[in-house]
Simulated assay, not measured.
Amino acid sequence: MVRRMLRRERPDALLPHVTVLAIRAELPTVADDVVATIIREVPAYEDAFGGPMGETIRTAVQIALGGFLSLISDRTGPDALAPQSSAVDGAYQLGRGEARSGRTSDALLSAYRIGARVSWQHLSTQAVAQGIEPATIASFAELVFAYIDELSAASVAGHRDESATEVRIRQRMLERLGRHLVTGAPEATVLASAERAEWSLPTTLTVVVAPDAQVGTLLQSLRRALPVPDLPDLEGAALILVPDVHGKRRATVLRAVAGRDCLVGPARPWQEVRASYDRVMRARELGLVGDTETHLPRLVLTADDGALADLRARVLAPLDDVRPATAAKLRETLRAWLLHQGRREEVAAALFVHPQTIRYRMGQVRELFGEALEDPETVLALTIALGVEESSG
């Protein structure tokens, strides 16, 4: 930009070589003044510039201004772009370093504004002392500030690129940590991964499985949630680990997932988060949604499908010789009878039939099952078998 201005807009701003030499001799003083003023006026740099970093910045100021002086000397040749290019590259790297140091781009821009002001005070004083005409000094001023704007823009670009890179790297580290937790990696591996990701391990973790389209929104509303993408068992969905939403705080995550076709597992100590994952995956296999805590009976009763089938076949065997339509009505009636503890009016209301119908059907059931209906173990087995039958239907 400055080179273009010199060629097309401000060719009158070129300074005599002797003036450039005089200004160049002042650069160490300029650099010292710039650093001192930045330390005084920008709190973020108060400690940073006190040691080696201060000397690095002094050198950078001298290199940057030296490149500028080479550019505007009336002895400018075809290679004058090299000092400017070197200064711009240095400014870009400075921005990256500031991002790594944790300082903001606002602090960096403040430092540049101070540097521009202090530098111009020194440069203009020397230019006047060398007898430069006011018109030339005005053009010179425009070039100085354009040059520093170019450097500051390069530093901001470096800061932005480094920040984006750090975000991507940390995101990958967090995802790796999430996979270690879910796959049950050794505790030492998890601890090392958490330290690298700068993520303090919580007391508990809760697994949430959400459709891919909902993940971004949920991560914004669930504080410190860990995404675990690309798990082979979750086609079209992603897993999120939510820290410390146990007890009364569980309502937080349930509100966040409401209406989003998600599954929420139980809270578990972070070392046992695999148990939360397994429960969610089991609920997903059954086509359930929402809070797995509300599906516990179904999850428990279907934990061993083979055992359940055997149980149903055994305890419901007295209905095997009954016509299918009649057997279905008797199963329905027996289930309601067990759930309502034999209260005929409530059973009738639940099935939308007359109480006399319930009396008749239960008479048939007693004939078929006999004294087994008085046996607590049989009653428990029937309750399990018929409860699962109803929920499966």
Rank of each mutant, 00 (worst) to 15 (best):
P202N: 09
A135Y: 10
R100H: 07
T252R: 11
A153K: 03
A87R: 00
V322Q: 11
R75K: 06
M53T: 12
P211G: 06
A60T: 07
R250L: 07
A153D: 12
R75P: 00
D375L: 02
R344F: 03
L81R: 09
V300I: 14
L339P: 01
I240K: 07
Q84F: 05
V190R: 06
R279Y: 00
R366F: 10
G90Q: 09
E374Q: 11
G290Y: 00
A107E: 13
V273C: 04
V257R: 03
E371D: 15
R260H: 12
E41P: 01
L218H: 01
G51P: 00
L218K: 01
E345I: 14
S163L: 01
G265C: 11
S392E: 13
A60V: 02
G77T: 13
V347F: 05
R24Q: 12
G236E: 07
L351N: 10
A80V: 09
Y277K: 05
Q93S: 12
V228P: 01
T189G: 00
W199H: 13
A258D: 14
I57F: 13
D278P: 03
I358N: 07
V207H: 05
E332H: 09
I169Y: 06
V208I: 12
E26V: 06
R4W: 11
G158W: 01
R96T: 05
A22H: 10
Q356V: 14
A44Y: 03
E235K: 08
E367K: 08
Q271S: 12
A82L: 14
E46W: 10
L81T: 11
V34D: 03
A328W: 02
L27C: 07
S200H: 13
D12M: 11
R343P: 01
A267D: 12
I148V: 15
S70A: 14
L15V: 05
G77F: 05
W337N: 04
L296Q: 11
V379C: 07
D79T: 12
S73W: 02
E26Y: 02
A309Y: 06
G115L: 10
G54R: 02
D233C: 07
T217G: 09
H246V: 02
Q220R: 05
E162V: 05
G50E: 15
D320C: 02
P243T: 04
S200T: 14
A36Y: 08
V167S: 13
V61K: 01
D149C: 04
L338R: 06
A238G: 15
D230S: 10
Q364V: 05
A153G: 06
E187T: 14
K329L: 15
E285D: 14
L219G: 03
Y92P: 00
G50M: 14
G370S: 10
L299E: 09
P11G: 08
V242C: 04
I23G: 00
L338A: 08
V257P: 01
R103P: 09
P186C: 03
R3Q: 15
A91P: 03
A111V: 01
Y92E: 02
V207W: 01
S155Y: 00
H354K: 11
V182K: 03
T294L: 12
T136N: 08
S193F: 00
A22L: 09
V30Y: 08
E98G: 00
M173W: 05
P202Q: 06
S221F: 03
R361T: 00
F68N: 04
D47A: 13
R170C: 04
G387D: 02
V156N: 06
T302E: 13
L222Q: 04
P28T: 07
L231K: 02
S101H: 09
S110L: 12
T125N: 10
L14T: 06
A157Y: 00
E367F: 08
G393L: 13
